[in-house]
Amino acid sequence: MPTFRAISSTATVVQPGGRVPADARLVPLQTAPDVLSTLLDRINATSANLAACLDRFEGLHILMFSSADIDVTAARLATAGVGHGGVNTVRRPAGADIETVRYLEIDGDQPGAVAEGRIGVVAELDRQIQAARLADHPNGAIGLVDATLCAADSELNAIQARYEHYLGKPPRTDGPAKVFDLDGTTLTLVPDSSLDTLLPGEHASELPALVACTVSVRDLATTQNVLQDNAIPVRRAASGDVFVPAEAGLGATIAFRQAD
């Protein structure tokens, strides 16, 4: 079975008549002429989905899982009755190289079908190209290690079952949370009644919602100092992680964890 891990992604939607920020870096995508029309339809569906998500609230709305064999994953999802838009293939510049990206979106042709946002799977990316992109950030960030999805208590079991179909595996129980182990990263499902216990002071403005992500860092004390030196508020999670509350994190709780 393909292994999965959560990966980070950021995007926004420019409304008609809006301006692209002057410092934005536009990345052209290349694809085969015979699939261009289909790809454009799917990109438009994705844009509509993200726009609807941002209308709900500012915050996290994208969660992509990495698969070692995306074609096997696509077939498994179809067999499990999970709708998706098929595997798309695009190419994009990456310095002096051209990077091939293959991905699928769950219920990709039905904007809004997945309430928490854009959920999908991407084939493992070229490790050399990805390594060349890594910057030595002052906060000591190494990588994404967890995404947290909050659900109404009454809906938690149904959402857990849905992600069991997506990921092809059950979660483990950790207190009030359900945790999917994903090859070095985790997806944590937490009931709304317990969110404040795990992340003191935090609450979800809408449910279900991707409320937090956790980043591993080289030295947690250094990271906390960098945040405080920049007047960014920090709190301490029940796990011992340091986190920036959603009100200061553009609608998303950003947690930092000491790397092993």
Rank of each mutant, 00 (worst) to 15 (best):
G95D: 06
E58W: 09
Q224T: 09
P93M: 02
P170A: 03
V82S: 08
R162T: 12
P208H: 02
H84T: 06
L167V: 12
A252E: 14
G108D: 00
L198P: 05
A80N: 14
H61M: 05
A48E: 05
N49E: 12
P200Q: 09
V27P: 06
D241R: 03
L182D: 04
L60K: 09
P111C: 07
L156S: 05
T222K: 09
L60C: 12
D23P: 04
Y103H: 06
I142Q: 15
G117H: 02
D219F: 05
L187T: 10
Q258L: 09
V234Q: 07
R42C: 08
L210E: 04
A231V: 15
I98V: 14
V101I: 13
A259C: 14
L144M: 01
G112M: 03
V90T: 11
A68M: 08
A259F: 10
V72C: 15
A238E: 15
I142A: 06
I70E: 03
T79F: 08
V35L: 11
L149P: 00
P33I: 11
A32L: 13
P21K: 09
T253K: 03
D153N: 00
E202W: 11
R5M: 10
V122K: 04
C213P: 01
A212D: 00
R102P: 03
M64T: 03
R25V: 15
R133W: 12
V20D: 05
A96E: 13
P2I: 08
I232M: 10
A11K: 09
A221S: 07
T148Y: 02
G81N: 10
L144Y: 03
L144F: 07
A6E: 09
V90L: 12
P176H: 10
V114Y: 10
T185Y: 04
L36W: 14
S66N: 01
V82R: 10
A32Q: 15
A135I: 11
D41L: 05
Q228L: 15
T188V: 10
M1V: 06
E105A: 14
R118G: 01
D174L: 07
E124M: 12
E116C: 04
I232G: 06
L36Q: 14
D241E: 07
A209V: 01
H84R: 01
A177V: 01
L125D: 00
I98G: 04
Q228H: 13
V72S: 15
S193C: 03
Q130F: 09
F180M: 02
R218I: 10
D192K: 12
D241H: 00
A52M: 08
G85N: 11
L149H: 00
V90S: 11
I70K: 02
T185I: 04
D229C: 14
Y166T: 06
V35A: 10
V13C: 11
F243H: 07
G140F: 02
L182C: 01
A135N: 09
R257Q: 07
